[in-house]
Design a protein around this nucleic acid. Structure first.
Length: 742
DNA sequence: GCGGATCAC
DNA sequence: TATGGTGATCCGC
């Protein structure tokens, strides 16, 4: 069997390319499947998409082999044990069989295409597809004769049918007609379950009883009423449960119906020869596995191979398979279903342009944000999805309660036209420069190692500090840290501002990392053409209340923030340094601090009152996130002049930080976030320690070693340590520092 | 809880 | 030239 397949592969290679398009589908009878297969193969061959499909198929084959081996290892004793499990489970499932309800599944015929034909009757009888050259949503029956079908890219469809007419999708129109159909459904089951714009499940038990007519008669009537209301045809299936009703509605498509009586024998007969692929939930992969490993083709065989299924699949999956074999599924009252996620994704041509990618992310984030606002929803988990040019997909998920790395989701506060100042992006330059700089930097690290000679003298400058001066030693160490950072800055003008680093990341990811998740060895990751953002799961919120209030009132067991604050904390908050405290205190140190804001962005500069020269600055922005506002710190940098000063580096950093934090507090932020960039291990650890001393806590290490980190790096502009701090806690912690100076 | 995979429309 | 967008679920760590 295998051999004959592989020899035929050599002569007719298209036979080995398994697309979903050749799968039996209504209106596809009489199609020259061989030709379709060949055309699809010829059009796909050599493309990135094709290569990815081959990878996926190889993976599935491997999975099948693995499972075969496991099945072969099962002993007679194992099998008899699992057979007992099956017998017991089948009895239980059988006992749960529900034959008293009548379900109806309605499925509009070629819905989008039919609606388009209503608005343009000239399309009637012509092969037509709704969609674009890249993707087809629906094809009318004329087009299906050529093998054109949903989910097929348009350019392949055109090859199959040269006269094919393309009509762009128009969801407004489809929604309108969908609403019309639903008004009809309403009359038969006010609680009908809409499965999509063009499909619904109705529990018609009551209507049948009340009117004393059969399910088939209801189906006829409903279909003709739908036609009267919309001019569209639909097909229906009537059966004792939803799973079967769905299968039935497909049997006499289009414009037909099929009734499966509420009778156990009828159901079992129906199911016995039914190909498993007809069952909702069994797709291409599952079908291949079940056939490849166990030789299962029909639902009946699910029961025959029950012991194997129980042995090799999880209980829930095995349960599903067994109920399919029994023709069970979906009879429960439709419970209130609520949305569990909301997402936005876009496909674009491959690029490595970091600015462009960032813009895409921002756009998508905006769309998502808008959708969520429209729906009045809040998220708890954020997922970033990336699809590379080779169609590999990777997700990064993050709980927003723990971590706020979604810089891309900042929502401009009032003026959305505010742009980042151009200064921030003046380094669209060469990664070579950056890389070599790093190498040089690393190689020179050793001479920069600080230790205390004889536990007394600084190895770098000879300063003398006994070990008992813990704080002073730390500050001295920070001094050298800043010195080092400063030197680097002098090599390349701007170091600390992010965004410009994207190029490095893209480069590192694309050429540096070889990723081997699971058994497949992927080649290098190329550019990143697709990105998706989604948020899940959701907690809905009633209208009009600001997000902050929502989060508090919705999180179970979590009292509003203020209430959880301890008494001591409350007292401390009342004494936290005000902005004027901080400014006064800084002037006492001959420091001139300034805070500038442009829209959501801010910059804090520290100048020497004596020399009027800049000593350091911090930049960042206030971004709105679902749980409230967040103070996002891009950088805290200290200037060269700072190094020659007597006063502690830590002190100046603290002053600048304090203004930023106080500003964030005044803006209503509860959290501050930053990335301690890791360009070299030595200074990174010091940087982290510096921020730790200020009061930040590590939330995540972005190492760049996993595919997933790619997303982090895109968002944060580098590898390093993501750190967060509670703004109130910081201010409380610092209060003595500033109050006492007053 | 996270990330990958599958499925449906 | 070119293979989508949205939402759900399950499995394995």
């Amino acid at each position: 069997m295998e051999e004959s397949e592989s020899t035929s592969d050599n002569q007719r290679p298209w036979q080995s390319y398994h697309t979903v398009y050749t799968n039996a589908k209504a209106g596809m009878d009489g199609v020259d499947k061989e030709k379709v297969q060949r055309v699809v193969y010829e059009m796909s061959k050599g493309s990135k998409y094709f290569e990815n499909e081959e990878r996926k198929e190889a993976f599935i084959r491997q999975k099948i082999e693995h499972m075969r081996a496991r099945a072969a290892k099962l002993s007679a004793a194992d099998l008899s044990h699992y057979q007992k499990v099956v017998d017991k489970r089948v009895l239980e499932l059988e006992a749960s069989r529900e034959l008293s309800r009548i379900w109806l599944h309605v499925d509009m015929d070629a819905f989008y295409a039919a609606v388009e034909t209503l608005s343009d009757p000239s399309l009637k009888d012509k092969p037509m597809a709704v969609g674009s050259m890249s993707m087809i949503s629906t094809a009318n029956y004329e087009a299906r004769k050529f093998g054109v079908r949903a989910a097929m890219p348009g350019f392949i469809a055109r090859k199959l049918c040269l006269e094919l007419i393309f009509v762009p999708t128009d969801f407004k129109k489809y929604t309108h007609y969908s609403d019309l159909t639903r008004k009809v459904f309403q009359n038969y089951d006010p609680n009908f379950m809409a499965a999509s714009l063009d499909e619904a499940y109705l529990d018609i038990t009551e209507v049948c009883k009340e009117r004393g007519i059969t399910g088939g008669e209801i189906a006829e009537e409903l279909r003709s009423r739908v036609h009267e209301e919309t001019g569209l045809t639909c097909s229906a299936g009537v059966a004792p449960n939803r799973l079967l009703a769905k299968v039935c509605s497909d049997i006499n498509k289009p414009n037909g119906q099929f009734v499966l009586p509420n009778d156990r024998i009828a159901v079992m007969t129906f199911i016995s020869s039914l190909p498993i692929r007809k069952i909702g939930g069994i797709g291409k992969v599952t079908e291949n596995i079940l056939r490849g490993v166990f030789g299962i083709n029909t639902c009946e065989e699910m029961l025959q191979k029950g012991s194997f299924l129980c042995a090799l699949f999880s209980p829930s999956t095995a349960d599903f398979f067994l109920s399919v074999g029994l023709g069970l599924g979906g009879t429960d009252k439709p419970e209130a279903r609520f949305r569990k996620s909301i997402s936005s994704e876009r496909t674009f041509s491959a690029t490595q342009d970091a600015t462009l990618l960032h813009q895409k992310l921002a756009d998508i984030a905006e769309m998502l944000s808008a959708d969520m606002q429209k729906e009045g929803l809040l998220g708890r988990t954020l997922t970033l999805k990336l699809k590379t040019a080779s169609f590999e997909i990777t997700n990064v998920e993050v709980g927003t309660a723990k971590c706020y790395k979604e810089e891309v989701l900042w929502v401009p506060q009032e003026d959305s036209s505010v742009q980042r100042e151009p200064e921030d992006r003046n380094l669209d330059s060469n990664k070579e420069a950056s890389t070599s700089r790093n190498e040089e930097f690393i190689s020179s690290n050793q001479m920069e190692l600080l230790y205390w000679v004889d536990d007394y003298k600084c190895s770098l400058c000879g300063a003398e500090l006994p070990s008992s001066f813990v704080e002073e030693r730390q500050e001295h160490s920070d001094f050298h840290l800043a010195e080092r950072l400063q030197k680097e800055e002098s090599v390349s003008e701007i170091y600390a501002v992010d965004l410009t680093n994207y190029e490095i990341y893209c480069q590192d990811v694309s050429e540096g990392s070889c990723c081997e998740p699971k058994a497949i060895c992927y080649p290098r990751i190329p550019s990143v053409p697709v990105s998706q953002l989604s948020v899940s799961p959701l907690q809905s919120s009633s209208n009009g209340i600001p997000p902050k209030a929502h989060l508090n009132s919705l999180q179970k067991g979590t009292k509003p923030y203020k209430e959880t604050t301890s008494k001591e904390m409350k007292e401390a908050i009342s004494t936290i340094p005000s902005m004027s405290d901080i400014f006064a205190s800084s002037r006492a140190q001959n420091l001139d601090l300034q805070l500038q804001t442009v829209g959501p962005f801010f910059r804090i500069t520290a100048k020497s009152l004596e020399s009027n020269r800049e000593l350091g600055r911090a930049e960042g922005l206030i971004r709105v996130w679902f749980g409230g506002k967040i103070l996002h710190l891009d950088s805290i940098r200290l200037k060269r002049d700072t190094l020659s000063m007597e006063r502690s580096i830590f002190g100046i950093g603290l002053f600048i930080g304090a203004v930023a934090i106080r500003y964030g507090y005044d803006c209503g932020c509860r959290t501050a976030e930053l990335l301690a960039i890791n360009d070299s291990d030595l200074y990174h650890s010091k940087l982290v320690r510096f921020y730790q001393r200020i009061g930040f806590k590590t939330v995540y290490e972005v190492t760049g070693s996993t595919i997933g980190d790619m997303a982090h790096m895109l968002m944060w502009g580098g590898i390093g340590t993501r750190m967060d701090a509670s703004i109130e806690e910081l201010l409380v912690k610092w209060c003595r520092r500033f109050k006492s100076q007053d």
